[in-house]
Amino acid sequence: MKYVFFCVGILILTLGISLTIHSDLGTSPFDALLVGLSVQVGLSVGSWEIIIALLLLCCNSLIRRRRPEVLGLLTALVTGIGIDTWLFLFHSWTVPELWLHKLVYMVIGLILIGIGTATYLLTHFAPIPLDRLTLIVQELMRTNLFVARTIIYLIFLGLALILKGPIGMGTILTVCLGGFILNIFMPLTKRILERFIHQSSSWSDS
């Protein structure tokens, strides 16, 4: 059951990321970095997700002074494939022209990213190195997810600006609200998953 929730979480997360990219309002600083690398250097957005994940995997290992969490790279691989798949499917869609439609794409994308991230993190199955870094910063600074996520977003924002990634109003919304949304959905999603697992256990016992 844990792996089902993991896959569902990644599916929702990558859909949210793709919607923010397609909104043309600017993406999260991390995704803006990926898009910037894709445009400036080449390769797909999903491919850069995997490459950056490998670098962060090593970074996390050094900070924690532990062996690299290799399974996190598997999660990044699935995420990268998911992003490229959604973007391929969205390729036939026209980019929204009305500002209101762009905003709807962005808001829905942010909510889905929060739900998807919370869902797969709660399975405790090797988070993406970026999300592991968020948890490490949270632990080291003894703060909440909102503050930890915002600090990391600001770092990647600087890198995305250098590589001319899609920075815009959506990026500002992500920096200001990304951690807040995740902080909201973590306990909410946890209650829903626990209730679902409890009901599944009751049905299997009966």
Rank of each mutant, 00 (worst) to 15 (best):
L121F: 14
L54D: 12
L19H: 08
L103T: 04
L100M: 08
E97H: 10
I172R: 08
I51F: 12
V137Y: 11
I162M: 10
L87S: 10
V147G: 07
T150S: 09
A76E: 06
T27D: 00
L56K: 11
F156D: 00
F88L: 10
S61Y: 02
F196I: 14
F180I: 07
V147D: 04
L182P: 01
L77W: 11
P96H: 04
P68F: 01
S18C: 12
R142D: 14
W93M: 13
Y120A: 13
T189M: 13
G16F: 04
W203A: 15
M141Y: 13
K2F: 05
D31S: 05
M106E: 02
L140W: 14
L103G: 07
W93P: 12
G114V: 07
A53D: 12
E194K: 11
D84T: 02
V41E: 08
F180Q: 06
L37R: 00
F125T: 07
K2C: 06
L25N: 01
I167L: 04
C58M: 14
G114I: 02
V104N: 05
R132T: 14
I10S: 10
T79K: 14
P166Q: 00
I21L: 05
G42K: 04
G170T: 03
L112D: 05
E194V: 08
L193T: 09
V8L: 15
A32D: 00
P187G: 02
W203N: 15
V147C: 03
I128P: 03
I113R: 06
L121W: 07
P129R: 14
I136P: 09
L25D: 00
A160T: 00
L103A: 13
L19P: 06
V8I: 15
I136N: 08
I152R: 02
R142K: 15
I50P: 00
I52F: 07
G178F: 02
I12F: 06
I113F: 10
L154T: 06
I83L: 05
I172T: 06
S61C: 11
F185N: 02
I63P: 13
V39T: 15
Q138V: 02
Y105C: 09
H101C: 13
V78A: 11
T143R: 06
I151T: 02
L145G: 05
A148K: 03
F185H: 09
V95R: 01
L135H: 07
L37V: 00
R149Y: 05
G116D: 08
L55M: 13
Q199T: 15
M1D: 14
E69A: 10
E139H: 14
S28L: 00
L34D: 01
I21S: 02
V78C: 12
L37D: 04
L62T: 13
I10F: 12
G178M: 01
F88I: 11
Y153F: 07
W99P: 09
L56S: 07
V104D: 08
I12H: 01
I113A: 07
V137E: 09
G168P: 03
W93A: 09
Q199H: 15
I83E: 04
L43M: 14
R195E: 13
M186P: 03
F146I: 07
N60E: 12
G109N: 10
G178N: 00
R142G: 15
L73A: 09
V41T: 10
F180C: 12
R142W: 09
V39P: 08
H198F: 13
I81Y: 13
D84S: 02
I162R: 10
R132F: 08
L100N: 03
L103Q: 03
P29R: 02
V70I: 15
I151Y: 00
G42W: 02
K102W: 03
R191A: 09
